[in-house]
Nucleic acid binder design. Structure first.
Length: 483
RNA sequence: CGGGGCGUAGCGCAGUUUGGUAGCGCACUUGGUUUGGGACCAAGGGGUCGCAGGUUCGAAUCCUGUCGCCCCGACCA
């Protein structure tokens, strides 16, 4: 390794050395985002935004396939609307941005820049819904929201972020609950299959639920530093909002009833999850399904061989592109192959094709995969097929690797001392019995900084003592320190 | 809000103790030679040293004030 190369490798702080710094290095070096002059806000650069667009595409398809349609609601929400639901306003008031003036004139009523759109959407729903025939209303919106956070972190917690928020209205509890769980499943499917990030699904505790919700469900992912990240939420809002916004319908039995509502959302935070779950000391690693560039073709074309290599590389590039793979060719003359290899690895491109004079002599190309670093030589005849095959393998391998990591870092104990030790020394998920009492949950948080991420579905358990207080319980909870 | 640290070129930093008119690496520009894991040589461009006062013949350096950022704590959909 040359001297320059050594210095370069140091440019990305090793993950083990300073996780925070590593995270920032990866994002900046991959040119996903940059800091903006507005505190806590970020500029998403084209490379990062293309990733987001690919994610949007995958998720939007699933949202539409489950019967929802996209719409758009205003960025500004009158103060009086936000005030209507008590829990909701209490939850969001400390972090909303206010608009107080229009031009030079002070507004008669202040506006908030939406931190979420429940209130303004409910206001519209109350006008749109009259009859049971109007239900269900299944609407989704892609937009930006603003939450004035004290501590921010790129992608994970920013003052402004992009997201998708679904808002639905139903006839009764059963339908609303079914919708809430259906959308949680859509998120699980999308995040696990497209982003290769394994998640735990479950219900949030009363403490952790959405401000104004009846029940909140979430998908929880484990980052490579052992901290948990809430990757998506789905809320059964009950009839709380319907009551204060007067969203009623005349049912087929002639009775006037309040609708049951749900809301659900995932945000650009998922980009942070991808980075922290898959990234390594060389930079970003992107799952093929959403990678802006799936394959990077690097022709190795010394002057003498340029005429033979470049046309051949171009033909391969076109051929693969036509087969529907997102491939780019890096034929810049001013950078050396090694420079390009590092550059594209930093950007997380899943697969690289190297093709030079030596390969052409043998009728082959070299394939290098980002997830394992392995290289293989493939004959030019089978290149196109092998590329598609490998992209699939990489996607699957990334998921398996992340899942294995999560399993290795998920512990099962009901002993509080052991629990504290694991949380402090190893991090990860700790699955323990919990009595269901809020005070107990709070005490554990104060002792260990670990919170209940969710109460999992489908975890069988026999009755036993609660982790902290010893009360008999058959509830299991996933605990972790979280972002 | 409490404790600590830092503001010097696009980025990362040295210079501050002991005042003398600003430097290094990367990046950038031009020319040439290069290309299988961040190539090399040569020549260039770029800075009101966070801001405002003060001390001094002279301030990046000393003094006072102020603004901003980062880390730890606190707070936290």
């Amino acid at each position: 390794m040359s001297k320059q190369n050594k210095e370069f490798v140091k440019e990305i702080t090793p993950r083990s050395e300073d996780y925070s710094q590593w995270y920032l290095d990866v994002i900046l070096k991959a040119q996903m985002m940059d800091y903006s002059p507005v505190k806590g806000c970020m500029v998403i650069r084209p490379y990062g935004f293309t990733l987001w667009e690919n994610m949007q595409q995958g998720l939007d398809g699933r949202i539409k396939a489950t019967g929802h349609r996209n719409a758009y609601f205003p960025l500004f929400i009158p103060e009086s609307l936000l005030q209507k639901e008590a829990d909701h306003v209490e939850g969001f008031a400390p972090e909303v941005a206010w608009v107080t003036h229009g031009g030079n004139e002070k507004l008669a009523e202040r506006l908030v820049v939406r931190p979420t759109s429940e209130t303004i959407i409910c206001e519209m729903y109350s006008r749109w819904i009259q009859s049971y025939r109007d239900l269900p209303v299944l609407i989704n919106q892609w937009c930006n929201v603003v939450r004035w956070e004290k501590v921010t972190r790129p992608f994970l917690r920013t003052s402004e972020f992009l997201w998708q928020e679904g808002h639905t209205a139903h006839r009764n509890e059963e339908e609303a609950e079914e919708e809430t769980l259906k959308m949680l499943e859509v998120y699980r499917d999308f995040v696990e299959n497209d982003l290769a990030v394994p998640v735990v699904t479950g219900r949030k505790t009363e403490n952790e639920k959405f401000a104004g919700a009846l029940r909140t469900y979430s998908i929880e992912a484990l980052m490579s530093d052992g901290k948990a990240l809430q990757a998506g939420t789905s809320h059964n809002l009950g009839t709380h909002f319907a009551k204060v916004f007067d969203i009623t319908y005349l049912d087929s039995d002639g009775e006037l009833k309040h609708v049951w509502q749900t809301s659900w959302g995932v945000s650009t935070r998922l980009i942070g999850a991808i980075i922290m779950v898959h990234g390594d000391d060389r930079g970003l690693v992107l799952p093929p399904k959403v990678a802006p560039t799936q394959v990077i073709l690097v022709p190795i074309a010394p002057k003498k061989a340029r005429e033979t290599v470049l046309p051949k590389a171009d033909a391969i590039y076109r051929d693969i592109k036509e087969s529907g793979v997102r491939i780019e060719m890096d034929d810049r003359e001013e950078y050396s192959p090694g420079w390009k290899f590092n550059e594209w690895e930093m950007k997380g491109v899943p697969l690289r094709i190297e093709i030079g004079p030596r390969d052409l002599e043998n009728g082959q190309a070299v394939l290098a995969r980002r997830d394992t670093g392995e290289k293989e030589t493939v004959s030019l005849d089978s290149l196109k097929t092998r590329v598609r095959e490998l992209l699939g393998e990489i996607q699957a391998n990334m998921y398996d690797k992340a899942k294995a990591f999560r399993e290795e870092n998920t512990y099962r104990t009901d002993d509080y001392d052991e629990f504290k030790k694991i949380i402090e020394e190893k991090r990860g998920f700790v699955v323990s019995r919990w009595c269901g009492d809020s005070d107990c949950e709070q005490a554990i948080k104060e002792d260990t900084k670990a919170t209940i991420r969710c109460l999992p579905f489908n975890e069988e358990t026999t009755s036993g003592p609660c982790l902290r207080c010893g009360t008999e319980s058959d509830k299991l909870a996933y605990f972790a320190r979280a972002y």
